[in-house]
Amino acid sequence: MGSLEYITNWFSAHPTTTSIIKYIVWVLFVIGVIQFLRSFLKRRLPAANSRYKAQKAVEIFGYFFIIVLTISYFTGSIKDFTLAIGLFSAGIAITLQELFLSLAGSIYIFIVRVYAPGDRIEINGIKGDVIDIDSIYTTMMEIGQWVTSDNYSGRIVKLSNAFVFKGPVYNYSKDFPFIWDELDVMIRYKSDMEITKQIMISVASEILSDYTAASKEKWGEIVNKFYIEDAVLDPTLAISLTDNWVKFNLRYIVDYKKRRMTKSLLHNAIHDKINKTDGLVELASTTVEVIRIPNIKINN
């Protein structure tokens, strides 16, 4: 008996094993096609954005095809082993539930567009810019932690896509790429309050004019899209009296990526204008009032 005939007879005598081997070969073939198409698109498409989206589309379609192939193959070719396959699938589902949640999360992210590469988000207590989304993980360039304000920490974080189902996702850039920020300036009580108001509002209107105009256009789209009331987008000033000084609180809207730089520009401009008032406006600082100096006895 020749080798070919022996192999043919063996496959005929073991139909279940033969079907499983065929299934594995099909899956490996599909994975190979996915990798080939990804490499082909990587070489052919010059634009990074188009290349990224095309590769992700091929990957998602390939995994979807494998799922359809698995369902159709096992329900149509191995009828005598339906119970075994069901038990096997249940065991796999329990063991790999986090993996399945991640796969479902990736599909949900792409379909609903919870976020996309380039967005700044906060999820599971981690804040950063999304730099990649694959079928299992979202990769982020981390912001914050041991550095102040919205600066990169230098760490790249991989986060399971399953977290989109487990808690809130804060998106800084989708639909409305602006955030509200505040700045406090402390003024001494003897200062001219009207001049201080004029300085604060004029500086804010000058530096923030572009952000205010752009945010009003975007906010109009938000109001039309969601059930939300209109908001004040121009800089606003609130004054409060404390034991030591008058606190001027400036609230304004700014591009989510330029919050730190804008606050620095506002501080510098306000400080320069206050210095030019010839003492009519003075910045306050913490002071200590001495009520009584105790008597000190010195023995010779």
Rank of each mutant, 00 (worst) to 15 (best):
L237E: 11
T196I: 03
L208N: 01
K225A: 05
D181E: 13
M200D: 11
D184A: 11
Y189G: 05
S191G: 05
S202H: 08
V223H: 10
D230W: 15
T196P: 07
K216V: 04
I228C: 11
Y211G: 00
F165M: 09
E194H: 10
V185R: 07
S191C: 06
I207M: 07
I187M: 06
Y227E: 12
V232H: 07
I228N: 07
D192K: 10
D243K: 00
S205C: 07
P168K: 11
A214K: 10
E194Y: 12
W245L: 02
M200H: 10
I201W: 02
V232T: 15
M200L: 08
N161T: 06
L183I: 05
S191Y: 08
V223Y: 10
Y189D: 03
E217A: 08
Y211E: 05
Y211M: 08
Y189C: 00
A231L: 15
Y189A: 02
K158I: 04
Y172L: 03
D175P: 15
T236V: 13
F226P: 11
K158C: 06
K190T: 10
S205W: 08
S240R: 06
D234P: 09
L183W: 08
E229A: 14
A238V: 14
V232W: 04
E217D: 09
I187C: 05
W219E: 11
S173H: 12
I199H: 12
D184Q: 14
K166G: 00
A213E: 02
K225F: 07
F163V: 15
F178P: 11
V169W: 06
K174S: 15
A214Q: 06
I195A: 12
D181F: 14
K216H: 04
A204E: 03
A213L: 03
K166L: 12
I199D: 13
V164M: 01
D210G: 02
L208D: 00
K190G: 06
I195E: 15
V164R: 02
I179H: 02
L208V: 00
S202M: 07
A162W: 02
F178E: 01
A162C: 03
W245M: 09
T212A: 00
K225Q: 07
S191I: 03
S240L: 03
W219F: 15
E229Q: 15
Y189S: 01
A204Q: 07
Q198I: 14
L159I: 14
Q198E: 13
L237I: 04
V185Q: 10
N244K: 13
L241W: 10
D184V: 12
Y227N: 11
Y172A: 02
L159V: 14
D181G: 08
F163S: 07
I239V: 15
N171F: 12
E206L: 02
A214N: 07
P177Y: 04
W180D: 13
S173K: 14
S173W: 15
R188P: 11
D234T: 09
A214S: 08
E221F: 14
E217K: 01
K218I: 01
D243P: 09
Y170Q: 03
